[in-house]
Design a protein around this nucleic acid. Structure first.
Lengths: 231, 231, 231, 231
DNA sequence: GATGAATGAGATTTCATTCAT
DNA sequence: AATGAATGAAATCTCATTCAT
């Protein structure tokens, strides 16, 4: 937008790259901890042991620094998932991998950064928000692929949109993490991941018409019975 | 703040209450749109067409105004759900009501406010956060009750913690809403609610109520019915 | 100065005068307690149980109200001293009365108001300051008269300016009162007044009335007395 | 204030110290002239020809700036007196030095700062007040020592508390200065100091019983005579 | 390349004062 | 005559950002 302004040169070279890495590392910490607004360039510079001006030598603005932090974080997650995904195993096993990897990566600094994306990604107009759409797409790609492949094998239901299934998987994970943070409780990653898959898997499978009908029948008879008892 | 000086009293009366409602309405809009930090009292006053001082005549601080906005919003949701919950219908029907009501209420300004609660609720110091814990509890109470009752009737699985099931329900809803907002896409509430229940319901079922058992139950109820008819 | 402005009518009548007295009484309390700046019209109105606007019905501004408070307080002190001064007693007795009356009157709300005069009386330019000069003059008049009369009788030294003697009397009193307030210590008025006079009196004496002259005077008066007795 | 965010560090170095000195010099002027409340950071910055933010770069708050101003002023006075006090000379000579030094130092900006200490030192909450108690003690220490030593030599009276004698010395000085300022009159320091000592010295000396009795006798005889004349 | 220092542009909050009712 | 309500005008303080050294 306004990058016509006499474009300050950003240093390059090995030393500069180390600097940039350091700044990003510390910035990620601070942004995750404090959120965008409460984070100050002063704080970042101080934790780094450099002057504020130095930070601005490498990043044009706080905003751009933040965007870069988020991008890098996404890249890490996406990379870890893309590299590790056991494509040759069962769909369920792949889902399990996806869930577990997520929980693990998020639990480190994830919630803070996640909040950052949610809060800042929204924020009036498309200032930041739109910058993340492609990232978000890449980020969910492995999951979408997984589900699409599952559908081909008949393991994943076709009666609802894929995007809804995606939400049914990503949503609970975020929710659990918020909850864990909010209550400052430890999370047993393996156990939680296993539980989540146990819950999610049935949600993804094709509807068993007969089973569902019988379950509904069971529920309704029970309800009718209780109604009668009360009367 | 806690100076010796007497605080000016907040006006009361019919006119004042209308004012308060107006301020709350507009503030809700702005907070939802911009988040806590980016919201300025100037903006709120301008949209209202009054001076900033007027806002401070009715609310002691930006912070308290925000708390009130969130409380009111929670109260609306909680009220709508508590009042409308069809307790005499089947557990599935209750879940459907819960999901649909939520989607409807959230879609108005929900995501913004939701983000508000999440972001501000976190925020290092428990400045705001702790004020919402009881609200959060009341807010999730109907769902937890619903699930607990479902368990008693054997309709809800017992092999994972209730809190995980709660996350499996609330998480996707939030996620869908974020998505809808982020892409600025319209949502067909009825259809989405129906799809969500279709997806979630199987996730909640006890794994051990199997097809055979249900068939047997069906058979017995059918037999009993015929017996009655003959008599 | 700016009183040309459409001169709002200040109510008059018995009721109005009572109101004015009430406002002045409470304002004196508050100003004395909090000082000019920290005093708010809100506080005054609240302690009175009326609206702020009512205060402004009777006094054009906070500033004028404050001036009036100070004037009234001065008037009280001046009145008490003028009325009570034992002009037919010895100069020392008159000084003692002056000191004691002062200490007593100041100790009630005096220090607060005294601070008020000092702080506000100074204050940039002659906004308030000059308004008090005539008061100050009236206020010190009894003391100046006392000293002048003393001089005529040869009881008060003539080698230093009267104004310096005045400062030597008023200064310590204020200082003692500040000290008492600052340390929040009770003051034994009678004892302190007696001590002060014991200290101040020698300071006021003519240096040239020496022991020998007084002895001679004493001798002569004694002789005269005996002569009379014999006759 | 005590947020998690790191505070920006206060610059140090030769240039910074000059800045600090400048800010303190100007602030002293303004505080002395206007008092704490009426002084604005805007005014200080303007007189300095810098932005307000610059002032806050060197002092965390208006309050702390003011405290520092007062401390520095006290330090100057205390230093000048401690260094210059002619301890080997007579008690009267020491008193003379004390009085003269005070008058000189106070006359520059003393009264304003004095008012500052008095007004702010009081002020309901001991916010500022308590910070000055130790200063006040150091400040009066040389005088108290002087008086105590004088007592040992039998030159200072023992019949009244030392604190009262202290007030009898400091009080008049402040009063004279107020007066000088209020009337915007020049003061001849040497003359005034000499006069003050002439007045104060007799006040401090042990009571000469016979002299006092004879003076009292003289006064009473005079009064009786006048009474008779009037009749 | 690094930084010390300065600052412009706000943001929240307070309060004396006014005016229609 | 009393007041409820509104507000203009400030005041303190923060922080991302720039620029000369």
């Amino acid at each position: 937008m306004e990058d016509n302004a006499a474009a300050r040169r950003i240093p390059s070279g090995a030393r500069a790259e180390q600097r940039i890495r350091d700044i990003l590392r510390v910035s990620r910490e601070v942004f995750a901890e404090l959120g965008y607004e409460k984070t100050t360039t002063t704080e970042i510079a101080q934790r780094l042991g450099v002057s504020e001006a130095t930070v601005f030598t490498y990043f044009q603005s706080k905003r751009k620094l933040c965007v870069r932090v988020i991008e890098d974080w996404y890249d890490e997650i996406i990379g870890a998932i893309e590299r590790g995904m056991p494509r040759d195993q069962s769909t369920r096993a792949q889902l399990a991998f996806y869930v577990k990897t997520h929980l693990r990566l998020f639990l480190i600094q994830g919630t803070g950064l996640c909040a950052l994306v949610l809060s800042e990604g929204r924020a009036k107009g498309p200032e930041l928000g739109q910058e993340f759409v492609p990232l978000q797409r890449r980020y969910t790609a492995p999951l979408m692929d997984l589900l699409a492949r599952g559908r081909e094998h008949g393991e994943i239901r076709r009666d609802v949109p894929l995007s809804l299934l995606r939400s049914a998987i990503l949503g609970p994970m975020e929710h659990i993490l918020w909850d864990a943070i909010a209550r400052q409780r430890e999370v047993d990653i393996d156990q939680t991941a296993a539980d989540m898959v146990a819950v999610l898997w049935p949600a993804l499978q094709p509807a068993d018409i007969e089973l569902e009908a019988l379950r509904a029948f069971h529920g309704e008879v029970g309800a009718a019975l209780r109604k009668l008892d009360q009367a």
